[in-house]
C-alpha cells in the first residue's frame, strides 16, 4: 500500500537491501541491551517491563504495517488472547512461566492464521475493518467464555518457577526473563525484515500487482507475515500477563488495537526502532496521566491527529531523515 511507502520513502525503505546488520544498527541494539540491563536499578522494574512488553507488541505490529503494508485494526485480539491463554495455562494447568508464555504465543499465532486467512481476502480499508470486526468478536467471546472470568479477568496468576527452579516472584528475577524474551523477539523481527522473505514483503507493500506478475504467491506471504505478527504480539501479551499476574478485557478491547497503531505511527512506521520509541513515549504518558482519568483518551486522540497531519514519518523516521541513515 502506498500509505506506508509514502511515509517512509526515505533511507529506511531503500537502503535495507544489505542483508547483514549494519554497524549503526549493531551499536543501537547494544545500547538498548545495556540500557535494558541498567534500567531496573534506576526505574521501577514493573514499569520498565510494561514498556518492554509494549515495545515488542508495537514492533510485531509494525512488522505487518510497516513492512507488509497491511493495517490491522484488531491486534488486541492476539495480544489479549495470548494473555488469557498464558494466564489460564499458568494458573489452572500449573505451567511454568516459559511454557505458559509459549502457550499464549502459539495460541495467538493460530488465531492470527485463522483470522488472517479470512482478512487477506479483502484489501486496504476493508482489511482494516475486517480485522477490527474479528477482534471485537474475540472481545465478545472473552466477555462470555467460562474460563476468562468475564469482567474480572483472570486474576492472581502465579509467576511460578522458571524451568521449575528459578523463583520469578521477585521483580528483578522476572525482569531479566522479560528483557531476554523481548530482546530475542526484537532480534527475530529484525531478522525477518532483513531476510529474503522480508524483501518480498516490501515488494508486495510497494507494488502488489508487480509481485504477482513476477510469480510470487502474494497471499501466502501476506498470511505468513500476518501469522508471524500475531504470534509475536501474542508473545508480548503472554509475557505481560505473567508480569502483571492478570489477563483482562482491557487487553482484548479495541482501544488496545488503537494504542498499538498509535505507538507505531508516533515512533515511525516502517522503521526498525521507531515502535520501541513510540511504545516508550505512550506508556510513559499513560503512567503520568493515569490520575487524570479520561484525559489519557483525549491526549491520545490529539497525538493521533497531530501525527497524521504533520508528522507521518514519526519520531525515528524524522531522525533517520536528518542523519540520512536507515533506522
Amino acid at each position: 500500500m502506498s500509505a506506508v511507502s509514502e511515509a517512509i520513502n526515505l533511507p529506511s525503505a531503500n537502503a535495507s537491501h544489505e542483508m547483514g546488520m549494519s554497524g549503526l544498527h549493531k551499536a543501537i541494539f547494544a545500547a538498548l541491551l545495556v540500557a535494558g540491563l541498567m534500567a531496573p536499578f534506576v526505574l521501577y522494574p514493573v514499569f520498565v517491563m510494561k514498556v518492554l512488553c509494549f515495545a515488542l507488541f508495537a514492533c510485531a505490529f509494525n512488522l505487518l504495517l510497516g513492512f507488509g503494508g497491511l493495517l490491522s485494526f484488531g491486534h488486541a485480539a492476539y495480544f489479549g488472547g495470548a494473555a488469557y491463554a498464558s494466564a489460564h495455562a499458568a494458573k489452572v494447568w500449573g505451567f511454568t512461566p516459559e511454557l505458559a508464555i509459549l502457550t499464549g504465543t502459539l495460541g495467538a499465532a493460530l488465531l492470527g492464521a485463522a483470522i488472517g486467512t479470512l482478512a487477506i481476502r479483502r484489501q486496504g480499508i476493508y482489511f482494516a475493518m475486517v480485522t477490527l470486526a474479528f477482534a471485537q468478536m474475540v472481545f465478545f467471546f472473552s466477555v462470555q467464555a467460562p474460563f476468562t472470568g468475564g469482567e474480572d479477568g483472570i486474576q492472581s496468576v502465579p509467576r511460578g518457577l522458571l524451568f521449575g527452579f528459578i523463583d520469578m516472584r521477585p521483580d528483578l528475577n522476572l525482569y531479566f526473563l522479560v528483557l531476554g524474551v523481548v530482546f530475542l523477539g526484537l532480534l527475530a523481527i529484525y531478522r525477518i525484515i532483513h531476510s529474503p522473505f522480508g524483501q518480498v514483503l516490501k515488494g508486495i507493500r510497494d507494488n502488489e500487482a508487480r509481485m504477482t506478475s513476477l510469480g510470487y504467491r502474494v497471499n501466502r506471504y501476506k498470511l505468513a507475515v500476518f501469522t508471524l505478527s500475531a504470534g509475536l504480539s501474542g508473545l508480548a501479551g503472554a509475557t505481560k500477563a505473567i508480569v502483571f499476574q492478570l489477563a483482562s478485557l482491557t487487553d482484548v478491547y479495541w482501544t488496545m488495537s488503537g494504542e498499538v497503531v498509535l505507538m507505531t505511527l508516533l515512533g515511525g512506521m516502517g522503521t526498525v526502532f521507531g515502535p520501541i520509541v513510540g511504545a516508550t513515549v505512550i506508556v510513559s504518558l499513560q503512567n503520568y496521566l493515569a490520575t487524570f482519568g479520561d484525559w489519557v483518551t483525549i491526549v491520545q486522540g490529539v497525538i493521533f491527529v497531530v501525527a497524521v497531519l504533520l508528522f507521518r514519518e514519526g519520531i525515528v523516521g524524522v531522525i533517520a531523515k536528518l542523519i540520512r541513515k536507515p533506522l
Binding site: M1, S2, A3, E6, L71, F73, G124, I125, A128, G258, V261, L265, T297, I298, Q300, G301, V302, I303, F304, V305, A307, V308, L309, R312
Partner: peptide
C-alpha cells in the same frame, strides 16, 4: 494520501470526542 490516513485521523477524532 492513502485511505488509511483518513481512517487513522478520524479514529483520533473519535477518541477526542
Amino acid at each position: 494520501l492513502d485511505h488509511l490516513y483518513g481512517l487513522l485521523l478520524t479514529f483520533g477524532l473519535a477518541l477526542i470526542a
